[in-house]
């Protein structure tokens, strides 16, 4: 299982508890999460489904490469962290 966690800064705005999920790509993991937490989608992704400009996602402490289609591969035991970028906002 892959773990998905969110910055505490998001918790004051929307209910976004951590979850254990499955998926081969970051997009698949996020879509799986949004099925059970649909409100979180708009906080993380923009209207076109890309990562919001001032949100960052780490896979095992490494920033993702594909912020548009979210195609970064996910391993079975990876840890995904959705962070508030230290920019803009």
């Amino acid at each position: 299982m892959t773990t998905l966690r969110f910055t505490p800064n998001l918790a004051r705005l929307v209910d976004a508890p951590p979850a254990d999920l499955q998926g081969a790509t970051l997009r698949e993991v996020l879509e799986s999460y949004f099925q059970s937490h649909p409100r979180v989608r708009g906080y993380v992704l923009d209207d076109q489904g890309a990562l919001r400009k001032h949100v960052a996602i780490f896979i095992n402490q490494e920033l993702i490469l594909d912020r548009v289609t979210l195609s970064d591969p996910i391993g079975e035991h990876d840890a995904i962290f959705v962070a508030q970028a230290l920019s803009g906002g």
């Binding site: 800064n9 705005l13 906080y43 993380v44 919001r52 001032h54 949100v55 508030q84 803009g88």
Partner: peptide
Amino acid sequence: DLGHFGVK
């Protein structure tokens, strides 16, 4: 206007 997290 939530900045990082978009408009709501």
